[in-house]
Simulated assay, not measured.
Amino acid sequence: MRKTDHLGGITAFVTTAQQGSFTAAAERLGLTRSAVAKSVGRLEERLGLKLFQRSTRRLSLTPDGERYLASCQSALDILDEAEADLTSHIMRPAGRLRVDLPSAFGRRRIQPLLLDIARRYPELSLTVSYSERFVDLIEEGIDLVIRIGELADSSGLVARRLTTQKLVICASPDYLLHHGEPETPEALSQHRCVMGVRRNEPVSWLLKQADGGLVRFTPTPTHEFADGDAMLSAVLAGCGLSQLPLWLVGEHLQSGELREVLAGHSGGEMPISALWPHSRRVLPKIRHVVDELVEAANKGLLD
Score class of each variant (00 low, 15 high):
residue 26 A to V: 00
residue 130 Y to M: 13
residue 9 G to V: 04
residue 174 D to Y: 09
residue 61 L to A: 04
residue 60 S to V: 10
residue 95 G to D: 09
residue 78 I to E: 13
residue 210 A to S: 14
residue 206 L to F: 11
residue 232 L to Y: 05
residue 234 A to N: 07
residue 264 G to W: 11
residue 185 P to A: 07
residue 215 V to E: 13
residue 23 T to V: 04
residue 117 I to D: 01
residue 217 F to P: 00
residue 140 E to C: 03
residue 5 D to F: 13
residue 214 L to F: 10
residue 128 V to D: 03
residue 5 D to M: 11
residue 194 V to D: 11
residue 181 E to Q: 12
residue 197 V to F: 08
residue 94 A to F: 06
residue 225 F to D: 10
residue 288 H to A: 11
residue 168 V to Y: 08
residue 272 I to T: 07
residue 16 T to C: 01
residue 292 E to I: 01
residue 73 Q to I: 09
residue 169 I to A: 09
residue 204 S to A: 15
residue 72 C to D: 02
residue 56 T to K: 10
residue 52 F to A: 03
residue 175 Y to R: 02
residue 241 L to N: 03
residue 205 W to N: 07
residue 92 R to S: 12
residue 198 R to P: 06
residue 240 G to Y: 07
residue 245 P to K: 11
residue 235 V to N: 02
residue 20 G to C: 05
residue 184 T to E: 09
residue 82 A to S: 07
residue 280 R to G: 13
residue 112 P to A: 02
residue 130 Y to E: 11
residue 303 D to T: 10
residue 43 L to A: 06
residue 171 A to H: 04
residue 118 A to C: 08
residue 124 L to K: 04
residue 5 D to I: 12
residue 294 V to R: 08
residue 13 F to G: 01
residue 123 E to C: 05
residue 229 D to Y: 06
residue 97 L to F: 06
residue 181 E to N: 08
residue 179 H to Y: 14
residue 161 R to P: 04
residue 278 H to L: 15
residue 185 P to D: 07
residue 37 A to D: 03
residue 112 P to Q: 00
residue 139 E to G: 02
residue 49 L to E: 15
residue 2 R to W: 14
residue 72 C to Y: 06
residue 186 E to I: 09
residue 189 S to F: 03
residue 264 G to H: 06
residue 62 T to D: 03
residue 201 E to Y: 11
residue 203 V to M: 10
residue 262 L to K: 02
residue 103 S to R: 15
residue 117 I to F: 05
residue 95 G to V: 03
residue 17 A to C: 03
residue 267 G to E: 14
residue 286 I to W: 06
residue 268 G to Q: 09
residue 206 L to T: 11
residue 37 A to K: 05
residue 196 G to Y: 12
residue 67 R to M: 11
residue 230 A to R: 13
residue 41 G to D: 07
residue 261 V to Q: 05
residue 213 G to S: 15
residue 40 V to E: 01
residue 171 A to C: 05
residue 31 L to H: 00
residue 281 R to S: 13
residue 137 L to P: 02
residue 301 L to W: 05
residue 143 D to A: 06
residue 269 E to L: 06
residue 112 P to M: 00
residue 117 I to L: 07
residue 223 H to F: 12
residue 115 L to W: 05
residue 289 V to K: 07
residue 35 A to N: 04
residue 133 R to N: 13
residue 54 R to I: 08
residue 133 R to H: 14
residue 179 H to M: 11
residue 216 R to V: 10
residue 126 L to C: 09
residue 141 G to W: 00
residue 242 S to H: 04
residue 104 A to S: 15
residue 132 E to G: 12
residue 145 V to I: 15
residue 124 L to V: 03
residue 185 P to R: 03
residue 103 S to V: 15
residue 166 K to T: 14
residue 126 L to T: 05
residue 285 K to T: 01
residue 99 V to D: 06
residue 210 A to G: 05
residue 112 P to K: 01
residue 223 H to Q: 13
residue 71 S to Q: 15
residue 231 M to S: 13
residue 59 L to G: 08
residue 74 S to R: 12
residue 166 K to R: 14
residue 7 L to Q: 12
residue 107 R to C: 02
residue 163 T to L: 01
residue 148 I to T: 14
residue 197 V to K: 14
residue 28 R to D: 00
residue 302 L to A: 01
residue 193 C to I: 15
residue 204 S to R: 12
residue 110 I to P: 01
residue 164 T to W: 10
residue 160 R to W: 12
residue 41 G to M: 01
residue 4 T to E: 15
residue 176 L to G: 04
residue 140 E to I: 00
residue 3 K to W: 14
residue 131 S to H: 15
residue 183 E to P: 01
residue 161 R to E: 09
residue 234 A to V: 08
